[in-house]
Amino acid sequence: MTIPVILITGFLGSGKTTLLNHLLRDPEMADSAVIINEFGDVAIDHLLVESAIENTVVLQSGCICCTVRGDLVDTLDDLCAKVARGELPAFSRVAIETTGLADPAALVRAFLTEPILAERFDLHAVVATVDAVNGAGQLDSFEEARHQAALADILVLTKSDLAAPAAIADLAARLKTINPGASLVPVVQGQIAPAALFAQVPAHPSRRSGDTLAWLNSEAFAASDSAGSHHDDGIRAFAVTLDRPVTRDALRGWLRSILSLRGVDLLRMKGIVALRGEAAPMVVHAVQQVMHPPVQLPAWPSDDHTTRLVFITRNMEPEALRGSLEVLVARAAA
Score class of each variant (00 low, 15 high):
Ala196Tyr: 04
Ala196Pro: 05
Phe198Met: 14
Ala199Ile: 03
Ala199Asp: 14
Ala199Phe: 10
Gln200Tyr: 07
Gln200Met: 13
Val201Pro: 09
Pro202Ser: 12
His204Trp: 05
Pro205Gly: 13
Pro205Gln: 08
Arg208Pro: 04
Arg208Ile: 05
Ser209Leu: 03
Ser209His: 14
Ser209Ile: 01
Gly210Pro: 13
Gly210Trp: 11
Asp211Trp: 04
Leu213His: 10
Leu213Ser: 15
Ala214Thr: 15
Trp215Ile: 10
Leu216Ala: 11
Glu219Arg: 02
Ala220Thr: 13
Ala220Trp: 00
Phe221Asp: 05
Phe221Pro: 11
Ala223Trp: 01
Asp225Tyr: 02
Asp225Arg: 15
Ser226Val: 02
Ser226Lys: 07
Ser226Arg: 10
Ala227Met: 11
Gly228Leu: 04
His231Val: 07
His231Arg: 08
Asp232Ile: 02
Arg236Thr: 04
Arg236Trp: 07
Ala237Ile: 00
Ala237His: 13
Ala237Ser: 15
Val240Lys: 09
Thr241Gly: 04
Thr241Phe: 03
Leu242Ser: 14
Leu242Lys: 05
Asp243Ile: 04
Asp243Met: 05
Arg244Ala: 09
Arg244Ile: 01
Pro245Trp: 00
Arg248Trp: 01
Asp249Met: 05
Leu251Val: 12
Arg252Gln: 12
Arg252Trp: 01
Trp254Gln: 00
Ser257Cys: 06
Ser257Gln: 06
Ser260Ala: 14
Ser260Gln: 12
Ser260Phe: 11
Leu261Lys: 12
Arg262Tyr: 14
Arg262Gln: 14
Gly263Ser: 04
Gly263Val: 06
Gly263Asp: 03
Val264Trp: 03
Asp265Arg: 13
Asp265Met: 02
Asp265Lys: 05
Asp265Ala: 07
Leu267Val: 02
Leu267Gln: 12
Gly271Thr: 09
Ile272Lys: 01
Val273Asn: 02
Leu275Val: 03
Glu278Arg: 12
Ala279Trp: 00
Ala279Gly: 06
Ala279Arg: 06
Ala280Ser: 14
Pro281His: 01
Pro281Leu: 03
Pro281Ser: 03
Pro281Trp: 00
Met282Ser: 03
Met282Gly: 00
Val284Asn: 05
His285Arg: 08
His285Lys: 05
Ala286Met: 09
Val287Arg: 07
Val287Pro: 08
Val287Cys: 09
Gln288Cys: 09
Gln288Phe: 03
Gln288Glu: 12
Gln289Thr: 13
Val290His: 03
Val290Ile: 13
Val290Ala: 11
Val290Leu: 02
Met291Gly: 07
Met291His: 06
Met291Arg: 10
His292Lys: 10
His292Leu: 09
His292Gly: 06
His292Cys: 09
Pro293Arg: 01
Pro293Gln: 00
Pro293Tyr: 00
Pro293Lys: 01
Pro294Cys: 10
Pro294Asp: 05
Val295Ser: 11
Gln296Phe: 04
Leu297Tyr: 11
Pro298Met: 10
Pro298His: 11
Ala299Phe: 14
Ala299Ser: 15
Ser302Tyr: 04
His305Gln: 15
Thr306Ala: 06
Thr307Asp: 15
Thr307Gly: 11
Val310Ile: 11
Val310Trp: 06
Phe311Val: 02
Phe311Pro: 14
Thr313Val: 06
Thr313Cys: 15
Thr313Leu: 08
Met316Val: 08
Pro318Met: 05
